[in-house]
Amino acid sequence: MSTAPFLEVEGLVRWFEGVRAVNGVSFSIAAGQVVGLIGANGAGKTTTMRLLATLDIPDRGTIRLGGIDVVENPNEVRQRLGWMPDHFLAYKDTTVGDYIDFFGRAHGLRGDDLTRRVDEVIDFTGLGELVRRPMDKLSKGQTQRLCLARTLLNDPEFLILDEPAAGLDPKARLEFKNLVRVLRERGKTILISSHILSELGEMCDTLLFMDRGVVVHHGETETLRRGTTTGGTCIVDITVDGPVTPLSEWLALRQGWKLVEERRDGARAEFASAEPAQLAAELRRLVTDNVAVTDFHRQDRRLEEAFVEMLRDPQPIPPKLPPVLPAAEEKSS
């Protein structure tokens, strides 16, 4: 996986009717990464995605995709990206085959190239049996697969998926997750927004948290789970062989530890740091202090908890804001 920034976003600003939907967003994504975009409703996720997808123009700021300025060269960028919106209605009187064929033609594919590419995406998304079915007779999962097939027709390097798993049943969700995994293996750079954070955690390398138009956190999923980014605490489950009293006493005396819950075979405790090196040192100390430890297991935070914690105590990445916001521009839409 390359680490060179494939997508660079700097100081992105977009106003709507005096509301700053996106207010100084900056981040970068390396080629081949799968990035999750998380935020509450109205956080600015969809506006950011639309700006990245050339569907809107920023009032301020730059976006470069593979070194190409998105505002200056939208047509060139469009050849390299695929956009899957959160919601769209089916065309009337159109079959799955007609739909894919039309978008293939719209992407400039002709003759054998069109035939080959249409067959490839239909095969990849498993829509072979449905080519003659009217679009409006598809299930939600099938519609999402069709939407993904359309998105892949121009073989894009960068995929923007807005709430792709929303409304899918567990089976369809699993299928969709597998498709994203295969795309990742094929080297696609993917930006996914979703409300289902646990799912994003499984699919994404890094997570971008947005709140009120700004990025409040951008980091690796694992780091976020372990809580090291916020300098926070971590919860550890300790199991012992024999009586629990020595462990409880040790936890009470040892600095940095707080007993959360005592169990029959051990305890759950909170440690003041989530740094792996410090945790390792504490485990060694437990053993040398003759506590009969049979299991020492750190509890990962659920991403939902991390998200809520982050919104409670936001640490925004400082945006590069313009010095003065002219009144005239606030009205532009």
Binding site: L81, F88, F103, A106, H107
Partner: peptide, 12 residues
């Protein structure tokens, strides 16, 4: 209504 204009304009 079908919100398909964006999809069309992202093609050629």
């Amino acid at each position: 209504d079908a919100r398909t204009l964006d999809l069309l304009l992202l093609t050629r």
